[in-house]
Design a protein around this nucleic acid. Structure first.
Lengths: 201, 201
DNA sequence: CATAAAATATGATAATCATCATATTTATTA
DNA sequence: TAATAAATATGATGATTATCATATTTTATG
């Protein structure tokens, strides 16, 4: 009688597939929205067939919830080193964050960017199972902004800054990757820095 | 031989039905997003059957494009008298606009509110036919904000203000109609007024 | 290598979707 | 009121959907 041979580490086959599906889904929801991805298409994009899906997720909604978490993690991982580098070069943490979030790079690459901006207007329509995860990630983003804000700026301002970042990126993307979109980003960037970053630099 | 008896006014039967479908659609897209409404459901909600749809619209996308225009008109019509009243009571046009946009009423009633906030993150994914109309309405909202801004504030700031309004409302709705959502609105409102409305009042 | 277990694939179901062809109803005109 | 035109309803098409049952393959164990 063998008891629990399953490894919790990356050696586990099923866990690796689960991970692959999730990474694919994390990109897909940022590209197409919650409503824009079907189970079959997702599995095909991951190089699998549709039937295996329910061995990994209880439902499509359960997958969407997990995918948002994964998207937020990957997005944070991708940004972290860039922020560090900018701070090393003498920028304030707040300037580093704002300039990165409102960069042309982020504008053009929704699939690897912030999921709050990519899904913003869809969140309130999701079932609680899905919405709750998104709300938790909003708190997390607000905390990160709060930490980056200069000490003399009240922490309550983090919410407004988040709204401005998310709204600016979203509307810039609506313009398409055009001069109008990039100009919108530049103006929001200047405005936020002028308002919250005049102390230093 | 009878030539062109069709009236362009409201007497026309088909035009009234077209109008009814559009008003229904304008609400539906703000409630459920572009992706959240089917042709059959829309017609049922309008009290009609699905088959007649294509006598009124060339395609679902054509309807979505028109529905955004209608939503923007209705939203503007609904807000205008409230703004006027607030200005009459001595508020600056900017304060009136911001307080109305970030009101608890607007938070709770997406179906009759600003379609840019309701559809923000979906716009960039629509076919050009649909997206172009949304972009035009964004310009229109930015112009309205620009007109409301104090004269000493540069007009380029209108874009940032729009992004902050849209982002704040959207994220507040994501929280649900809870204290957290209302608090987010209140903070954004205070922040915008402090930044752009300190001159007067 | 053979057997057991785990993971994935195949295939099916019933629902929903946008769209169109045709029938029926309603309105208009003579 | 009869004939005609306009508007709407009925019904069908083929595609796509989430989900599940079962078969096949892959992996791990003796």
């Amino acid at each position: 009688m063998v008891i629990a041979m399953k490894s919790v580490t990356t050696g586990d086959k099923k866990a690796r597939t689960h991970d692959l599906i999730l990474d694919t889904a994390a990109k897909a929801i940022r590209r197409g929205g919650y409503a824009g991805i079907s189970v079959a298409d997702l599995m095909k994009e991951a190089g699998l067939t549709h039937g295996g899906f329910y061995a990994h997720f209880a439902s499509r909604n359960a997958m969407l919830a997990e995918a948002m978490d994964r998207a937020a993690s990957r997005s944070a991982e991708a940004i972290a080193p860039k922020l560090q580098q900018a701070v090393t070069q003498g920028k304030t943490p707040f300037r580093a964050l704002v300039e990165q979030y409102l960069s042309d790079e982020h504008l053009a690459d929704a699939e690897q960017g912030c999921p709050i901006a990519a899904l913003g207007s869809e969140i309130c329509r999701q079932p609680d199972e899905v919405r709750a995860v998104a709300v938790r990630q909003m708190q997390s983003l607000r905390d990160a902004i709060s930490r980056a804000l200069p000490d003399d700026v009240k922490a309550e301002q983090a919410g407004v800054v988040m709204a401005t970042l998310v709204g600016s990126l979203q509307l810039a993307r609506a313009y398409g990757d055009t001069a109008e979109g990039r100009s919108m980003l530049a103006q929001s960037c200047a405005s936020l820095l002028q308002q919250f970053d005049k102390v230093k630099q």
